[in-house]
Amino acid sequence: MHNPLFIGALFVISETLAYAAPVSLMEQLVARDGYHQGNRELEVYRSGCVERNGADERSWVLTVQSMARGQCVEGDASAGQCTYMSGWIDSYGRWSTRDYPKGMVIIRASVITPGVANATGLWPALWMQPNSSPPLDLARNATHGWPTNGEIDIAEGWGSHQDKYVTALHYGAGSAAQSSYISTEYGPLNFSLSDANQYALAWDFSAPVAHLAWYLKGAKDSAWVRVKEQTLNSLAPGSKVVDCPELGAWFARAPASPARTCYANVFKAGQASGYYLIANLAVGGTFDGSPERDLAGSQMKIERVDFYPAETNPSNTGL
């Protein structure tokens, strides 16, 4: 959940092949209470900010609410002061990629900012982290694998620039200070976070060279677009080299080091434990800055989350 490094190539996926039946993950998601303060965010997460609604009460809705200023983490003044409550849902302990070396998830989601033209500070996110990193547990992530086993960001949006979003990967040593990341920013014509867009992530850890691919089908689009495809390197898990040009873009400058640092094959190691899904609506922090006005009432709506075992092309789904 950081700023982007580069713009990736885009490919329109136009062919429509055989339909693959999905497995809905909507009932595998649960609301959490807790905190996620590693990015200087201004919210605490409360299950009371999460509800099911719609005609069939299937959609998940995460809502930002105001609260009296108080410590973000009870008993920990260093965590800062929070002024908002918000919603977090995840599939931890209920579904992950662990038993599925090849597959794809498709999420249809929208962001609502009623009466707020500029929602600076709002940070909606759809992402995955390994089972070795429990949710809302940043205080213990150094010993639970973040970012050693990788974080996969399917889509993150800026409240200040709702005409684009970003995908990202985070990886590195066992602390945020030593982590690296790689990301792609995408803002196609007529795109808006407020629309019910479909975001897809496909993975294949079964191939000799594992890879991930991100796709988008905007609410106003007729075809899927491949936003990014990333081949994962094949070095031994946990190895670290100062310069690794054979990996192309698969290295980033570690914040704690002046040298280019490459962390090898962390995502295959993460897949050994399995990646679970997360959707949360953050406020403030290092991504989009502090709110310039009250963001209470802002929402993220998750209409569907579908899992396709062994399928990696959303054009084959009929969606």
Rank of each mutant, 00 (worst) to 15 (best):
1 M>V: 09
15 E>Y: 08
16 T>C: 08
17 L>F: 15
17 L>N: 15
20 A>G: 15
24 S>H: 04
28 Q>C: 13
31 A>F: 14
34 G>M: 07
39 N>R: 02
43 E>D: 02
46 R>M: 14
48 G>Q: 07
56 D>Q: 11
57 E>G: 04
61 V>R: 12
64 V>R: 04
79 A>T: 10
83 T>L: 03
90 D>I: 06
95 W>H: 15
102 K>T: 14
112 I>N: 00
114 P>H: 06
115 G>F: 10
115 G>N: 04
119 A>L: 03
125 A>S: 14
133 S>V: 14
138 L>F: 10
142 A>T: 15
154 I>R: 08
158 W>K: 11
160 S>A: 15
160 S>N: 13
161 H>P: 00
163 D>P: 11
165 Y>E: 00
170 H>T: 11
172 G>N: 07
183 S>C: 06
199 Y>F: 12
200 A>W: 01
203 W>G: 09
209 V>G: 05
213 A>P: 00
214 W>S: 12
217 K>M: 01
220 K>V: 03
225 V>C: 10
236 A>C: 10
239 S>R: 14
254 A>D: 12
265 N>M: 14
278 I>C: 05
280 N>C: 04
285 G>S: 03
290 S>W: 03
294 D>F: 04
299 Q>V: 03
299 Q>F: 02
300 M>V: 00
306 D>M: 06
315 S>I: 10
